[in-house]
């Protein structure tokens, strides 16, 4: 457990550089799609209310110590050796950043 947390911070440190801070927000239609994806598809591992399942909880208190870019990097690249899959290819950087910000704020249910 401890080993992967420290590995994780290494991954985050190196990879977050790869997330360009794009100012473009997903449009409202896309936002609705992403909300649905988070609650149902992320929810299948993190719980539909994001209080945790096989993957840990994704509530603001759990993500406080990460920046939005860190969280977006987890989403885009996944967590090697853990069941958290990389969503790059299905989610753009903007999508991931938007999700990350919503998660950190507390996802609108």
């Amino acid at each position: 457990m401890r080993a992967w947390k420290s590995m994780l911070s290494a991954v985050v440190a190196s990879a977050s550089i790869g997330v360009a801070l794009a100012g473009v927000l997903p449009d409202p239609v896309r936002q609705a799609e992403l909300t649905h994806l988070v609650l149902h598809d992320c929810g299948s591992c993190h719980g539909m209310t994001l209080k945790g399942g096989l993957g840990g909880p994704l509530l603001p208190a759990n993500l406080d110590h990460y920046s939005s870019e860190d969280v977006a990097t987890f989403i885009l690249d996944g967590i090697p050796g853990k069941p958290m899959p990389p969503w790059r290819g299905q989610l753009s950087t903007q999508d991931a950043l938007w999700i990350a910000e919503q998660l950190k704020k507390g996802f609108a249910q």
Binding site: D41, C45, P83, P86
Partner: peptide, 10 residues
């Protein structure tokens, strides 16, 4: 030895 695809649902 085969590359696995990302798993989106267990």
């Amino acid at each position: 030895g085969e590359e696995k695809l990302p798993v989106y649902k267990m």
